[in-house]
Amino acid sequence: MANHISSEKRARQSEVRRLRNRANMSAMKTATKKVIEAVQKKDFSNIAELLRAAQSVIAKTRKKGTIHKNNMARRISRLTAYVNKARNAQ
Rank of each mutant, 00 (worst) to 15 (best):
M1D: 14
M1Q: 12
A2M: 11
A2F: 03
N3I: 01
H4N: 10
H4G: 13
H4F: 09
H4M: 07
I5S: 15
S6A: 10
S6F: 05
S7G: 00
E8W: 03
K9N: 05
K9F: 08
K9D: 07
R10E: 05
R10T: 06
A11E: 10
S14K: 10
E15C: 06
E15V: 05
R17E: 11
R17L: 14
R17F: 09
L19C: 12
L19Y: 05
R20V: 03
N21Q: 12
N21I: 04
N21Y: 09
N21G: 03
R22C: 02
R22P: 01
R22A: 14
N24I: 02
N24S: 10
M25A: 14
M25V: 06
A27H: 06
M28R: 10
M28T: 04
T30D: 15
T30C: 09
A31H: 01
K34I: 10
V35S: 09
V35I: 06
E37Q: 10
A38F: 06
A38R: 01
A38P: 10
A38G: 11
V39W: 02
V39R: 01
Q40E: 15
K41F: 09
K42T: 12
D43C: 04
D43W: 07
D43E: 09
N46D: 11
N46P: 03
N46L: 08
I47T: 11
I47W: 08
A48P: 01
A48D: 15
A48T: 10
A48W: 00
E49G: 07
L50F: 02
L51S: 09
L51Q: 02
L51V: 02
L51Y: 03
R52C: 11
R52S: 14
R52W: 07
R52A: 13
A54Y: 00
Q55V: 01
S56F: 03
S56K: 11
V57C: 04
A59Y: 10
T61A: 13
R62N: 04
K63H: 13
K63T: 07
K63P: 08
K64G: 09
K64P: 00
G65M: 00
G65H: 00
T66L: 07
T66I: 06
T66M: 12
I67S: 02
K69E: 01
N70M: 07
N70K: 15
N70Q: 06
N71E: 09
N71T: 06
M72E: 14
M72C: 11
M72D: 11
M72H: 04
A73T: 05
I76S: 07
S77F: 14
R78V: 04
R78Y: 04
R78A: 10
L79Q: 03
L79C: 05
L79A: 03
L79R: 03
T80C: 01
T80L: 03
T80V: 09
A81Q: 05
A81C: 02
A81I: 05
A81E: 04
A81W: 03
Y82H: 13
V83P: 00
N84S: 14
K85W: 00
K85S: 08
A86N: 08
A86P: 07
R87P: 04
N88H: 14
N88R: 15
N88Q: 12
A89Q: 15
A89S: 10
Q90W: 11
Q90D: 14
